[in-house]
Design a protein around this nucleic acid. Sequence first.
DNA 1: CTCCGGCATT
DNA 2: AATGCTGGAG
Length: 276
Amino acid sequence: MFGLCIKLFLISATTRTRSCFSSKIHPGESPAYWEKVLEGIGKMKCVAYDPVDTMEWDKAGDNLPPKERRFAVLASSLLSSQTKEHVTRGATRRLHENGLLTADAIEKADEETIRKLIYPVGFYSRKASNLKKIANICLMKYDGDIPSSIEELLLLPGVGPKISHLVMILGWNNVQGICVDTHVHRICNRLGWVSRSASKQKTLMPEETRVALQRWLPREEWVPINPLLVGFGRKICTPLWPHCAECAVSRFCPSAFKDTPNSSFKSKKSALNKKL
DNA sequence: CTCCGGCATT
DNA sequence: AATGCTGGAG
């Protein structure tokens, strides 16, 4: 499934030149030089997912029946934390090795067993319990499959906008929206690509970022922008002290060399909270 | 807003 | 040693 991301990313990278022209569909609304920025980030070659490491799991996933593959996609997405993807993949693999990637198996499994298998991922306790609940719901309502719409996915415990859009893309090959995680959210704000309605302020929630980004970003970029910015965000445009000197697109970035921990809005918020 | 909870980064 | 972090729920 991670392989799918790479494939889509590569396909888009090769057609990016073409997609630059399609941006003329949204004149005035899109930020200046956004094509150059995406191109520049692509050239820095920090794709999020290591192709070699993902191959093994990808094969295992591809051999599953569609229903089981989709459930595996959902389970894996639930465990994911983009900043620590190797940990996520390890946890998914351990579940898979123990035959615990189907709704049926998880429903029958002991919650403690699942908790131990996914232990290295963040929030393992909550995620183990959510996984059990989701397995139960999938069996009762969807015959062991997963919901096929954003609305129904959002009803599952522990599934929010980020995971539901990811699952629609990876599980159903259906692009309903951009998968906005913390990296996409942070970087789009630094680039000045999204703002709160009418004002020039940064968006506060990833969900706001998603809507704002979708207003102007051409559809063919909706899937590849995630692995592109996740990789970039982990290696160069880091949350604290971004490496602007090494960044090939800093000349297009209004926040370049300015975004120190003290000026980032999250730090401001926590600093404010401590004072109160 | 806080919380989760081990881990990376300072 | 201390801080800050995932994405979602309450």
